[in-house]
């Protein structure tokens, strides 16, 4: 490539400007600059600002007061913070059902029968629908007076607690609602992955007598590694980001029993004007998320090696 550049330059008869000579260095910067500027202003710099804000006391207007680690010290004594953190862990753990369920749905649908394409896309449907709509429907399902669950179970003599109004159940009610679109997402990732599974390897393994779980774990799953990785990443991120469903279904209630860090942060900033404290919560959430972001980037870096 260097040779070609020199040849071109030679042809241009030394009328080579500075720009021409360095265009392969300048042009990428010109191309990247607008995107990078926007991204820096609206994403990167605000992260730094938020972290800085977490060391201050601020009502949203007026002067900011530097308080050092005081907000973090307050967090340690705040039962709602701990409740939200525990709920986020519940979200994380139970959300991991989504890749598992998604894999089984994908295996179930991975057949070649009439109309299967339509069935697959209908199964994917929940992911396309707004979380707000999902939250509204599940809230109807759970309603203790006229909800679908109550209507179905009452005749059987089973009476459920009012799920979203019960301190012990609310979080799980919301997580189930969240699992619905998330499973659909993981399913589509696995369906795509299954397309590239090598059928000859499966045949060979079958001839060797592999079947059932062994076949799945030893032969299929290794070939679905890439799909599993992405499914895990998007599921973890989704679990930590959970906000919309909490906002529409319970607003963190009853008595903060279904609160999560994302919603508690919003609550502190918007309704209580505790910007510094809210920023400290956001920073904690950000630090937790960073574990997964770094994991993703490290893997990406590994794959990039040897790329052009």
């Amino acid at each position: 490539m260097a040779e070609i550049t020199i040849m071109t330059d030679h042809r241009a008869e030394r009328s080579v400007t500075f720009f021409r000579k360095h265009k392969l260095l300048i042009m990428p910067l010109v191309f990247i600059a607008p995107a990078f500027a926007m991204f820096s202003i609206f994403v990167i710099y605000p992260i730094i600002q938020s972290i800085a804000l977490s060391f201050t006391e601020w009502q949203g207007i007026g002067p900011k007061k530097w308080v050092g680690f005081n907000n973090y010290r307050l967090l340690l004594d705040d039962p709602v913070f701990w409740k939200s953190l525990v709920n986020n862990i519940y979200w994380l753990v139970f959300f991991l059902l989504a890749p598992v369920l998604g894999l089984f749905v994908a295996l179930f649908l991975n057949q070649n029968v009439y109309g299967i394409r339509l069935v697959k896309s209908l199964f994917f449907f929940p992911f396309v629908v707004s979380q707000i709509v999902v939250g509204l429907v599940f809230a109807w399902f759970y309603d203790p007076a006229f909800g679908l669950l109550a209507t179905l179970l009452d005749p059987l003599g089973v009476s459920l607690p009012p799920i979203l109004a019960d301190e012990n159940w609310a979080t799980f009610g919301i997580i189930v609602a969240g699992l619905w679109p998330q499973t659909a997402y993981c399913m589509i990732l696995y369906l795509t992955g299954l397309n590239s599974v090598n059928p000859e390897m499966i045949e060979a393994a079958r001839l060797d007598g592999a079947k059932g779980w062994r076949l799945l774990v030893k032969i299929i799953l290794p070939q679905l590694k890439a799909a599993t990785f992405i499914a895990l990443v998007v599921t973890v991120i989704g679990a930590l980001r959970s906000f919309d469903l909490v906002a529409i279904m319970t607003e963190g209630g009853p008595y903060n029993s279904s609160n999560v860090l994302a919603y508690y942060m919003y609550d502190n900033a918007i309704f209580r004007y505790r910007m510094g404290y809210a920023s400290a919560i956001a920073t904690v959430l950000f630090l937790i998320m960073n574990v997964y972001i770094v994991w993703f980037l490290m893997r990406l870096n590994k794959n990039e090696k040897g790329a052009r």
Binding site: I47, S50, I51, G60, A262, A278, A282, L285, I293
Partner: peptide, 18 residues
């Protein structure tokens, strides 16, 4: 990496400054 990582951050860390 910056572009990708920025996309994974929780919205709340951007909320007040934005």
């Amino acid at each position: 990496a910056l572009f990708i990582a920025g996309n994974f951050v929780p919205f709340q860390i951007l909320m007040i400054p934005v």
